[in-house]
Amino acid sequence: MNTHMKSWFDVGSISDIPRRGARCVKTGTMTVAVFRTADDKVFALEDKCPHRNGPLSQGIVHDGCVTCPLHNWVISLETGRAQGADEGATLSFPVRLEGIASSCR
């Protein structure tokens, strides 16, 4: 995937997402979870836990991670990678803030 193949999409305003929470963006082919941390950083991951496809958007957000609601795997918001002893990663997408939250695919 080359950068020039991608374009940015306007997905909404940061104020739509609760702090330490997430909202979903449906793309037609997949659901992307857009997270907002306590310090207003925004990240985007495919809404699919590497373990058994749990919806990460429904998890508890803490520091730079989200805990999956199904079996408590902890996933890094930045890399999409499972933390600790668990192995696996979900897709992650760059996000740009321009007063609005944007995600790219």
Binding site: F9, G12, I17, R23, K26, G28, T29
Partner: peptide, 11 residues
Amino acid sequence: PMSELKLEAAE
């Protein structure tokens, strides 16, 4: 959902 993208159109 926060938004639903029409990707086909955007690409």
